[in-house]
């Protein structure tokens, strides 16, 4: 197989992947009264009477009642955002497991992205520095002294 044929093959693969992913694309329900939507919403809320459980996972009274409330609001045709802010108004922001993107809370979203960006930049700079270093080393080449050291090491090693 020539390099050219391979290139065509890779392009075909890319097209196949894009087409297949688009064929299978789907958005989760944001309306309707399905249980999928109910548990997706309940999973974004914290059970305030429990130690570290979501409303979706808990069987505490408050979680059961909140799930009923979510279901009745879903029946009324409210949107996800409306339902979530209803509970946030009633119980405070801490009921939302998904931190808001406003105020101090937004830092939890921003800081990782900034840190990851810095990491990538840092790695890029390191590679650039190594490349320069390698360029310098290559231009110098091995000195006679280096050659002598290698020869001595080879003589001294009984395994070879």
């Amino acid at each position: 197989m020539t390099a050219g044929q391979r290139r065509v093959g890779w392009a075909a693969m890319l097209v196949a992947v894009v087409v297949l992913v688009l064929l299978g694309a789907r958005t989760p329900p944001t309306s309707g009264t399905s249980d999928d939507r109910l548990y997706a919403l309940a999973g974004q809320m914290k059970c305030l009477q429990c130690a570290g459980e979501s409303v979706a996972g808990s069987q505490a009274d408050i979680a059961v009642k909140m799930r009923e409330e979510i279901r009745s609001q879903m029946r009324e045709g409210r949107s996800d955002d409306e339902i979530l802010s209803f509970f946030a108004d009633r119980y405070g922001q801490r009921v939302l497991l998904n931190p808001s993107s406003e105020g101090v809370a937004s830092l939890v979203w921003i800081v990782p992205v900034v840190a990851a960006g810095l990491g990538v930049v840092g790695l890029g700079l390191a590679f650039a520095a190594w490349r320069r270093q390698r360029g310098d080393a290559a231009s110098e080449g091995a000195t006679d002294e280096d050659q002598a050291l290698v020869a001595a090491a080879l003589r001294g090693s009984p395994d070879v």
Binding site: G43, Q93, R94, V95, L97, S100, L107, A116
Partner: peptide, 30 residues
């Protein structure tokens, strides 16, 4: 980065509460 994100998300509510007294949660959706 993954470790940092998880550590940050885990202790973030403590940090916020220490800064301005707000109670918030960072959970599974994050």
């Amino acid at each position: 980065a993954f470790a940092f994100v998880i550590l940050l998300g885990t202790v973030f509510p403590l940090i916020v509460e220490a800064i301005n007294g707000d109670q918030m949660s960072v959970g599974a959706p994050f």
